[in-house]
Structure formats: C-alpha cells, structure tokens
Write a protein that binds this DNA or RNA. Structure first.
Length: 258
DNA sequence: TCGCTAGGACGTCACGATAT
DNA sequence: ATATCGTGACGTCCTAGCGA
C-alpha cells in the first residue's frame, strides 16, 4: 500500500514536472513565433531540421505510468469497443465501413453496430485486403465526389480533385449504383513520375495511419490519467479512514487504567 | 473590445518494440 | 531485414478566461 501511495505521489509530481515542461515549451513556442514564421514552407523546413525527440529530452512520465499500472488494482478502463469492421469518416461527414469479408458499406450516420449502412457493391472481385485500389464515390443527389484509396484495410479519403489525380480512374460503368468506380492501382511502376506518385501515396497512407494511431493513443492516455485520478481519490479516502482509526485506538490504549 | 495566456486537441516526426 | 505499431516530443491552431 505504502509503495503504491508513494508511486501515486511520484506520478503526481511527475505530472507537475510535465506541466512545467509544457510551460517551458510554450515559452519556447512564443519565442519561435516571434521569429518570422509566417511562411508555411519555412515552418516545414524548420520541422524537417528538428532534432529527434530522444536527443532533446529523456523519457519521463510514461515509463513510470507503465510501471505503476502493473501494481495498482485494475482500473475500470473501458477497452476500445471491438468493432465488426473498420469505420472511417469522410470530410463530408459520411462513414465508410469495411466488413470482415472486405465489403464496403457507406452510411451518413455513425454505425453503433453497422446497422443502417448502405451496402456498396463493388464492380469486380478485388477485395480491399488483397490489393491497393481506388474507389470513386459520388452521391446521386449531390455533386459531391470523393475518392477512397484502399490498401489492406486502410482507406484514404480525398476529393476527386485531390492529389491523387495521377491515378487513372476508369470510365464509370453504367450498371454501377451511385457512380461507383473501382480500378486496380498500377501494379508495375516504371517511370520516375509513377514511382514518385507511388511514394507520395505510401506517405499519405502512413501519415493517415499515424494520425489515427496518435488519436487513439491520446484517448488511451486520457483514460488512464482519469483512472489514476480516481485511484488517488480512493487512496486518500482510505488514508483518512486509517488515520482516524489509529487515533481512536491510541485513545483507547493510552487512557490510563484506573 | 482587445491583447495575452493557459490549456486542449491535433498532425507530424522520430524511434524503440514487436511482428512477419 | 523489413514492416508495422505505439508513443514521446514538438509545433500549431483554437478557444475560454481575464485584465486593461
């Protein structure tokens, strides 16, 4: 118990330290802002010249958090819901879901399960898991048109006018509902331009995945911090109770027998 | 109302750990 | 050996709160 307490205290103080570090970072930020950072390209350049994280500062808080997690009683952290498929949201607010068998479904509302999703039949046998592919999707009612680049179970969503213009999009097959077009991405790249496009696409995919991962990571961290705070509250309560109990016992034993 | 500050959320990069 | 994942660090943007 005592060791847990001290660890929780240590955790709290490292929280303070990290807050201080954040203040320092902000100060540095402001100083950096005072330099000429108006140009986005310069900013990019600065980013690219940046030192690596490990060089700048050592690991602190998280390592400790992980150590403590093994000792304290399991918190009621709700695990990420197990979804029957991957679900993505487009910048038009629609949700694209991949079912286990590789089918794609589109919905305008987030699927609690996957009910209410509108099935999107694919034009050929290419499954998203097996090959990279592009789906162009346009709504019947509107002029909104988007492209989805898929590789494995990942999807990259862009407006049809976006950077993926290098891809060849087949002429829509009239039999396809909702203007759905599906093509295989070029299997063999030859020209430097194609290679560059491939590299760009790979990079976009990696960035997208990392974005998702960072979001998930933050969510987990927040949940864990909340859990720790609860734990602190519980321990403080216990501590108070024990102190009162001790006081009462002292009163009994220290009272002089008549 | 305006400027400043703190805090939160996000995207990106780098890197270690783990899986294939 | 290479790919993928998870996460710390950083820079940026946005917003709420506060004092002048």
């Amino acid at each position: 118990m005592a060791s847990i307490d001290s660890q929780v205290q240590e955790q709290a103080s490292s929280g303070v330290l990290s807050a201080l570090a954040q203040v320092a970072r902000r100060r540095a930020n402001l100083e950096a802002k005072n330099e000429d950072v108006s140009n986005i390209h310069k900013r990019r350049e600065r980013l690219s010249r940046r030192q690596t994280c490990r060089e700048v500062s050592p690991d602190t808080v998280v390592t400790k958090v992980e150590e403590i997690q093994e000792e304290v009683a399991p918190c009621n952290v709700t695990p990420a819901p197990i979804r029957p498929a991957s679900v993505y949201q487009t910048n038009h607010g629609q949700f694209i879901a991949f079912t286990q068998d590789g089918a794609i479904q589109i919905s305008s509302a987030f699927p609690g399960g996957l009910q209410g999703l509108q099935p999107l039949p694919l034009s050929n046998s290419v499954k998203p898991q097996s090959a990279a592919a592009i789906v162009q999707y346009s709504q019947e009612t509107g002029d909104v048109s988007q492209q989805f680049f898929m590789q494995g179970n990942n999807v990259l969503v862009q407006a049809a006018t976006g950077e993926m213009s290098g891809y060849q999009i087949c002429t829509p097959t009239s039999s396809l509902p909702q203007g759905v077009v599906m093509v295989e991405s070029p299997g063999s790249m030859h020209s430097p331009q194609q290679m560059a496009e491939e590299a760009t696409r790979k990079r976009e995919l990696r960035l997208m995945k990392n974005r998702e991962a960072a979001r998930e990571c933050r969510r987990k961290k927040k949940e864990y911090v909340k859990c720790l705070e609860n734990r602190v509250a519980v321990l403080e309560n216990q501590n108070r109770t024990l102190i009162e109990e001790l006081k009462a016992l002292k009163d009994i034993y220290c009272r002089k027998p008549e």
